[in-house]
Design a protein around this nucleic acid. Structure first.
Lengths: 232, 232
DNA sequence: CATTATTGAGGACATATGTCCTAACAGAGA
DNA sequence: TCTCTGTTAGGACATATGTCCTCAATAATG
């Protein structure tokens, strides 16, 4: 992660998302812009958390790793989103791993400064309150989704999320096979079963498997299968 | 639900839970105490939400009903807990049904009054922020729990929750059979499978089934099976 | 009291998913 | 090039859970 020391750029991002009002003057000098490459880890589960970030551009995915080493995807998020809010409020270590799915820009600020300058600033409190309740609401839904629908549906949903690049309207429709094991963990199933479902999708003509890649052929059909897309 | 018009009682509950500081003077006249009988619905999913409640005594359960009519238990909660907070912040209809498991006392206040008098009062904002982030954190865990563990474990967990009366140390160890279908829905499985698992538990000597009741015999064994108890 | 309706437990089978193992294939070093 | 080794897809089987149906016990009714 690279810090970009350009207060004007910070300001322009704040303005672009109507965020100027949630921060007071006192905190402004402590806001900074950060950039992450695609694939980079923004936060790692279990690490002490020192920063709160506001995602202003790009796409991230959030996942958790259980004691037994299983990983489970929690969600994909695009701007505007806050990262590290729970940890900030609860004063706990990072609870989930956050990874940049695309190139990502975030406005970051240290917990200590935030506490010092905005802890009593209601617009800020109201802002994260809004964000967190929305997160909670979505999690509510995704939990039901996960409990009620089979892997087939979750995979379709996942594929749609991963192969789409929001910023431009183009998407590759390709998915590297290298990390199929990861993918399995992410949607909460076994590698074996993932393969089964992929094979199913292939023979249904929804996708094709070739040397190290999966090519999505019928995006619409995937959307139909996915129904409501939880991973967004 | 019955309103108890006794400002002094409200004050004493607030004091008992160190809640005086989260409300300002202006809102005080609008706080009122409410009482619910065991089994009574406090909030119903889909209804407009007008009140925010602070649970000060007793135990509640929160569940959701899907479009297809399936119900899924979300959690059990004891004091201190806030009910209707998400709805208050997001200004949406009630998202989950809340039911009194025991006799319940709550301090209630109308959204409109809260908005008018405490919307800029940081101690209050900080308080619900704390509560909601904690909820979020727990939901995070319970989601993993639900995805990772079989019905057996969830049932054990459920039984422990339902048959225990926090307030006193006595518990009945009995569970009415009348609502086994409900129970199945609540832990996210079918009635058929629930029966299977109960039968299993019976033949393992953990419980006994008799005329309309289930009697829990080996609470410790259930605890072992449940591991971390998500429904609390 | 006999008969019918209701309800709850469980049998039979289907499906989703997990575990373990194997075969095919690709890349690395001799 | 040949062999070794690691990786990946898929076979075989086990387990968890869902669906549908039946049977028995109980309650309701004539």
């Amino acid at each position: 992660m690279k810090e970009i020391k350009d207060p004007k750029l910070v300001q322009s991002y704040l303005q672009a998302h109507q965020l100027e009002t949630i921060f007071n003057e006192a905190i402004m000098p402590y806001l900074s812009l950060y950039h992450c490459e695609q694939g980079e880890l923004i936060l790692s589960q279990g690490e002490p958390s020192k920063y709160l970030y506001v995602l202003v551009k790009g796409k991230i995915k959030i996942y958790t790793t259980s004691a037994e080493g299983k990983t489970l995807i929690l969600s994909f998020k695009s701007a505007i989103e806050v990262i590290g809010d729970i940890e900030y409020v609860q004063e706990i270590d990072t609870i989930n791993t956050v990874e940049a799915v695309s190139s990502v820009y975030m406005i970051g600020v240290q917990h200590t400064n935030l506490k010092k300058f905005t802890n009593d600033f209601s617009p800020f409190l109201q802002f994260i309150l809004k964000i967190i309740t929305e997160k909670f609401y979505l999690k509510n839904n995704s939990m039901s989704f996960n409990l009620m629908y089979p892997v087939e549906v979750r995979l379709a949903s996942y594929l749609l999320s991963v192969t789409q690049d929001d910023n431009e309207s183009l998407f590759t429709g390709q998915l590297s096979t290298t990390s199929l094991t990861d993918t399995a963990n992410l949607i909460g199933t076994s590698y074996r079963h993932l393969n089964r479902v992929i094979k199913q999708f292939c023979s249904d003509g929804l996708m094709e498997r070739s040397k190290g890649f999966i090519l999505i052929k019928d995006r619409e059909a995937l959307k139909t299968i996915a129904g409501g897309n939880i991973y967004e």
